[in-house]
Design a protein around this nucleic acid. Sequence first.
DNA 1: GGTGTCATGTAAACAGTTACATGATTTT
DNA 2: AAAATCATGTAACTGTTTACATGACACC
Lengths: 178, 178
Amino acid sequence: MSINHAILGLLSSKPMTGYDLKKLIQESSFMYWSGNNNQIYKALVELLDGGFVTNEILHRESSPSKKIYTVTPAGLAELRQWVLSPPEPPEFKKTFLIQLAWGDLLHTDELNALLTGYEQEVRTQLLLLKGQAERGDSAQERNPRESLLWKQIHSNLVSTYANELAWLEQLRQELNLT
Amino acid sequence: MSINHAILGLLSSKPMTGYDLKKLIQESSFMYWSGNNNQIYKALVELLDGGFVTNEILHRESSPSKKIYTVTPAGLAELRQWVLSPPEPPEFKKTFLIQLAWGDLLHTDELNALLTGYEQEVRTQLLLLKGQAERGDSAQERNPRESLLWKQIHSNLVSTYANELAWLEQLRQELNLT
DNA sequence: GGTGTCATGTAAACAGTTACATGATTTT
DNA sequence: AAAATCATGTAACTGTTTACATGACACC
């Protein structure tokens, strides 16, 4: 349930509308939520109720009125608190591994096709990541330490996918030699 | 929604009760569902309705009657079909990375403690994995190809965690040198 | 005598996704 | 003239988790 904290984080660099937040979260590689309206607008109501953000409402003739959200000091304190909290282990959902678990039902060529399919998916994810990096995503960093952290987050994801590809290579070799 | 297929897979090696399936799924490292009653018993009803499994009911005086589920040929066909279907990309939920994204709010020593906390979590996961492997988990394999596949699934998870540790090492170095 | 395992199931709450609804403005 | 973007929100559905409920039998 940390999308609220992610929103606090995003707002800490710049006041934004729900619509802006939605886009940032949807485009982000490491903020893993889908970033649909329901999540965002619900979270913003909660954050407002909790006093962690305030909003400035721009009324416009017709069109829904634009709401620009800003973190409060209480919101910043909450964010810091959360960042300090004990990390959770990473979670992996690799449905492919479950397919592979019963891959013995397949002929060798079918199994090979399955591996190739997975490889394609992983490569696609890697390309998406690099695309985001080139577009200089995640906006303005402030100081060198922060910018180092963001680079390392990106590097974490890249290495995770690269590791998957390396493992695939190993699997292919073992399958062919047996 | 592939827990149904995972259940078909498990039943394909041996008829079992819902209770047995629950334990296998909960102990498994790569079948990522929690394996709570609600999921299992609901899935079994669906599989039964679809004609993918049958059950033999052992009535016992008092105690709920034991139901032993067996895959039907239709179930095996469905399983094979699913195993052949185009793989999805892996999904990662690394909440830690989101904490790190705003890690610049922390003092250096706090940040270091955060990294250590994460490292501990990852190491714990690795130990759990090795424990499962030693207990010769995932039961009886049939032929060399299948047994190779199961070993490689295990190896995938190990390497994923190992990669995380290697990345942490790199991050530590970059943080200290800056 | 208490704890743990076996064995089934239900209820309630929470989280997440997809789709719906509206309507102006900007781009192609 | 059509399509995409801006901007907010709601409704319905699906998936997941936690907790409740029952009761025998085995083990310490």
